Amino acid sequence: MMQENTTSNVALIVGVTGMVGVSLIECLKKPTVLGGPWTVYGVSRQPLPTWFLSSLLNKYINLDTLDQENTHKILSPLSSQITHLFWLALSVNQTEEENISHNSTMLSNVLKALTSAPDTKLSSVTLQTGTKQYLGPVFDPKFSSELAPPVPPFKEDYPRLPFPNFYHDLEDILASYSNSFSHSVHRASAIVGASTRSFFNVALTLFVYASICKRENYPFRYVGNKYTWEHFWDATDVRVLAEQQIWACVTEKAKFQAFNCTNGDVFTWKQLWKVICNVFDIEFVPFHEKDEFDCVAFMKDKGHVWDSIVEENGLYKTKMEEITCFYGMQMILKQEFQHVCSMNKSREFGFPGYADTLRSIANWVDKYRQMKILPMN
């Protein structure tokens, strides 16, 4: 495996407070990390939360990258230092057209700032996307009824679906810079990690749901349908995703490639539900097909319960509505297709990372408890 010979790599992580950003910092600061030692700069729209390990960052930048003028003012002086850009930023809007506009603007603003000077050092960009590459704009009601995912396992060489998708636009922006720097694309499945700043955080949504059910003695009912209860899914541990992105940015063979990124195993939601019940010490409730359950409606008025849990346990101040994604989770889990990606290409190119999804759940719950985001029991 051929790697670049660098000794002074400087990473800029845009979206540093999300699940992957947190893990990426930790991975980049390991003494044995590929391409190390790394200097790490981090960007986020909002100030750092108290649970964030800011001591691992060499420099923190509070910046809204939608603002072209301010982005250029702040980042262009760093263009002679930053060698690698890790793009984790995400703007989620009502329509896919808005997603395209906002996300493309942010990436373009940053790239223009980092390549504006003649002594720019930028050599590599890693772009994080996801399986919406294969599913299409599932959250846009204008298109959702027309979508039909390809046969799983999803593979990187599947053609683009004929629907608007901001992932495509971001990939095309990077391709337009192909003579200036290399890039890689990382398509994650359902991401499991620890942060209060990630928009589509299925794991934290389930953990909050379990915590509320335990406190109020509600049954922990499954939020999807019989199909997803019984059929295979996959997930992406943020540590695997961070390791793949670092591997790709320092590996010659991985330049200008797109890679799926999952843990390398599969599970059924029935199995996962039992694991969550064991971790939270709540009763396992088997799924009954005739039991119609609308989790979004059920949780709509439970914000005050979460407020009480936060207050009683001295947790980091969060609002349930801001850290959960019940609508998106329920919609996906009521589909009838197996959500499984092929990891063959990633393995063939030499990336060895993997994780045991079911075994990792308890570790992530412990992490959230240590961060004082979830109650201890």
Rank of each mutant, 00 (worst) to 15 (best):
residue 11 A to F: 04
residue 274 K to L: 13
residue 175 A to W: 07
residue 72 H to P: 02
residue 95 T to K: 04
residue 165 N to F: 00
residue 129 T to N: 05
residue 276 I to L: 11
residue 213 C to F: 04
residue 336 E to M: 03
residue 244 Q to V: 12
residue 159 P to Q: 10
residue 220 F to M: 07
residue 19 M to A: 15
residue 324 T to N: 06
residue 201 N to M: 00
residue 274 K to W: 05
residue 161 L to E: 01
residue 40 V to R: 01
residue 39 T to N: 03
residue 196 T to Y: 00
residue 51 W to R: 12
residue 40 V to K: 04
residue 176 S to L: 03
residue 330 Q to N: 11
residue 267 F to P: 01
residue 28 L to N: 04
residue 365 V to Y: 00
residue 343 M to G: 08
residue 377 N to M: 11
residue 269 W to N: 10
residue 357 T to A: 06
residue 209 Y to N: 07
residue 223 V to R: 08
residue 129 T to Q: 03
residue 100 I to Y: 01
residue 234 D to I: 06
residue 57 L to K: 02
residue 331 M to V: 08
residue 44 S to G: 12
residue 113 A to E: 02
residue 273 W to R: 13
residue 238 V to E: 04
residue 62 N to C: 14
residue 207 F to K: 06
residue 309 I to V: 15
residue 144 S to L: 02
residue 112 K to N: 13
residue 188 A to D: 00
residue 256 F to L: 07
residue 172 D to A: 13
residue 322 E to T: 14
residue 75 L to C: 08
residue 13 I to N: 00
residue 105 T to F: 07
residue 136 G to F: 05
residue 311 E to A: 15
residue 331 M to Y: 12
residue 155 K to N: 06
residue 114 L to G: 01
residue 63 L to V: 10
residue 372 K to L: 08
residue 207 F to R: 05
residue 113 A to Y: 02
residue 14 V to F: 05
residue 268 T to A: 07
residue 225 N to H: 02
residue 371 M to E: 08
residue 189 S to A: 13
residue 257 Q to M: 13
residue 298 F to S: 10
residue 298 F to Q: 05
residue 313 N to A: 11
residue 173 I to L: 09
residue 251 T to P: 04
residue 299 M to K: 11
residue 271 Q to V: 12
residue 247 W to C: 05
residue 254 A to T: 08
residue 171 E to A: 04
